[in-house]
């Protein structure tokens, strides 16, 4: 489990993804979901490190040893949310039941039209936040993503909905261009989607207590928000099985600048609060934890 998560190659490959997409869009979601069982088994047997990471995480979350069926269920949930991205992108929230909590908190934060950071994590499905396009169509969302990390999936999702490509700010290129693009999008009042739980190789991190033990969290999302003086709203979309998602918004910070002299102390406070809220939402349904690597062991 030594390899950095970014060094794990994408599972499945282009053909498998294309097949699932075609079956999904032509035969519907139930037929495609039936395929998730063999896919889950394949993943379970072929991806040892991910299987072990799942088992270790579930044992930690449930405070008991994880069984084989728990791990299978975990992988199945993960595969299910990836499949659902196909539908969410192709048809929006149609056919799903998506509960939304905390919309007022989000609306209060963005009332001045100066943009905000939507801070999420690799839990559940950030794609479920697309429900926003239906309830608040005037909001613009831009997502910072590394297109190079999952090239086959990115290609597929962009082909499904070309508008998504314009939504993405690529984190894979040089960092300066990405942060300037974030500045420009925020200046136009967009919501900037950032994920606060994984650092890319070489990115600065700081430790915070998470599920009882220190884990490293990237500092960049918090520093970007502070530099641009953007309010931060936590945003998580949990998959609850079947066709049900629950989207949560929660006000996190007001968008105050962080003076450099106070940086370490303020960052420690922000990261600890983020880690605590992430733990809270992850505990609502631990099968939504999609960091299949040794999260605590860096």
């Amino acid at each position: 489990m030594k390899a950095h998560w970014s060094e794990r190659r994408e599972g499945g490959g282009r053909f498998a993804l294309w097949l699932i997409r075609s079956i999904g869009l032509h035969l519907g979601r139930p037929a495609a979901r039936a395929l998730l069982y063999p896919i889950t088994l394949y993943f379970y047997f072929r991806r040892g490190p991910e299987r072990r990471a799942s088992r270790a995480f579930l044992a930690r979350a449930f405070a008991r040893p994880a069984r084989e069926r728990d791990v299978l269920r975990h992988i199945h949930r993960y595969a299910g949310t990836i499949l659902d991205r196909v539908f969410l992108l192709a048809r929006g929230a149609h056919g799903f039941v998506i509960g939304v909590q905390g919309l007022e908190e989000l609306e209060t934060r963005i009332a001045h039209g100066r943009g905000a950071v939507l801070l999420g994590a690799h839990i559940g499905s950030f794609e479920a936040l697309r429900v926003l396009a239906e309830i608040r169509p005037e909001l613009r969302v831009r997502m910072l993503m590394d297109r190079g990390q999952t090239p086959a999936l990115t290609e597929l999702l962009h082909a499904l909905n070309p508008a998504v490509a314009d939504m993405v700010i690529d984190a894979g290129g040089d960092g300066t261009t990405a942060v300037l693009a974030i500045r420009d999008a925020a200046a136009q009042g967009a919501l900037i989607g950032l994920l606060g739980d994984r650092a890319r190789p070489g990115e600065p991190t700081q430790a915070a207590r998470f599920f009882g033990e220190p884990a490293q969290f990237p500092v960049a999302p918090h520093l970007i928000a502070a530099a641009l003086e953007l309010p931060v709203v936590l945003a998580f979309g949990l998959y609850r099985g079947g066709n049900r998602y629950d989207v949560y918004f929660e006000s996190f910070s007001t968008g105050a600048a962080i003076p450099r002299a106070d940086r370490q102390a303020r960052l420690a406070e922000l990261l600890q609060r983020y880690a605590a809220r992430l733990e809270y939402y992850t505990r609502l349904d631990p099968y939504n934890w999609f960091n299949f690597y040794a999260f605590w062991n860096v």
Binding site: D174, G175, T176, A178, V179, L180, I182, R183, P204, A220, L223, I224, A227, L228
Partner: peptide
């Protein structure tokens, strides 16, 4: 310097 510094410098 890192990309956050670049952002602050650009501002």
């Amino acid at each position: 310097l890192d990309s956050i510094d670049a952002l602050e410098l650009a501002l």
